[in-house]
């Protein structure tokens, strides 16, 4: 078992790089990413697990980084929006006007990207279930729906 007592230096794997950070046991992954690594793509929208703006991938699965302790992330593969390298969902969001203010966007991108990796043929209902973890206050979701549909079911499009 891994233990963090008091202020400690630990090592994380973020966007395919090994990064050393100093943490308190109570630090959330969101704070560590933003304050120590300057990865501010993940946003604090509520820090209560309700909005999804802080979503990152942990071993490929979307996780709300405001609800995960940094200590829990040791030994796992973390991907933030900054680590998406020309993922199809990024262009799909741009081309479909999938955002306005952009504050929710990183979180949505991470959920959509993970969905396309884990369930590339997700039905509408599965897609909705995944994306319901996130809130966008600017768009009507119509644009986000269009964007994610571009990257799902790519195989059955002619």
């Amino acid at each position: 078992m891994f233990q963090v007592i008091g202020k400690s230096v630990i090592s994380l794997e973020v966007n395919e790089e090994k990064r050393d950070v100093t943490i308190e046991p109570s630090d959330t992954l969101l704070h560590t990413l933003r304050e120590q690594l300057g990865l501010t793509g993940a946003k604090p929208g509520c820090e209560n697990g309700d909005c999804g703006a802080c979503t990152v991938l942990v071993d490929g699965w979307p996780i709300k980084s405001c609800l995960m302790l940094t200590a829990e992330a040791v030994g796992h593969r973390i991907t933030t929006v900054e680590g998406l390298k020309n993922a199809p969902i990024q262009a799909a969001f741009v081309e479909n006007w999938g955002f306005q203010c952009g504050y929710c966007t990183s979180g949505f991108l991470m959920v959509c990207h993970a969905l396309s990796q884990i369930h590339p043929d997700a039905e509408e209902i599965v897609m909705e279930e995944w994306l319901q973890a996130n809130i966008c206050r600017c768009t009507s979701y119509e644009e986000i729906r269009n964007a994610v549909n571009v990257i799902l079911h790519c195989s059955d499009s002619p």
Partner: peptide, 21 residues
């Protein structure tokens, strides 16, 4: 016309007030 800052917003590069640490 796509918004000028579109690619900043899909790469996490867009900076908001509290993003400057």
């Amino acid at each position: 016309i796509q918004r000028q800052e579109a690619w900043d917003k899909v790469t996490g590069r867009a900076k908001y007030t509290d993003d400057d640490q």
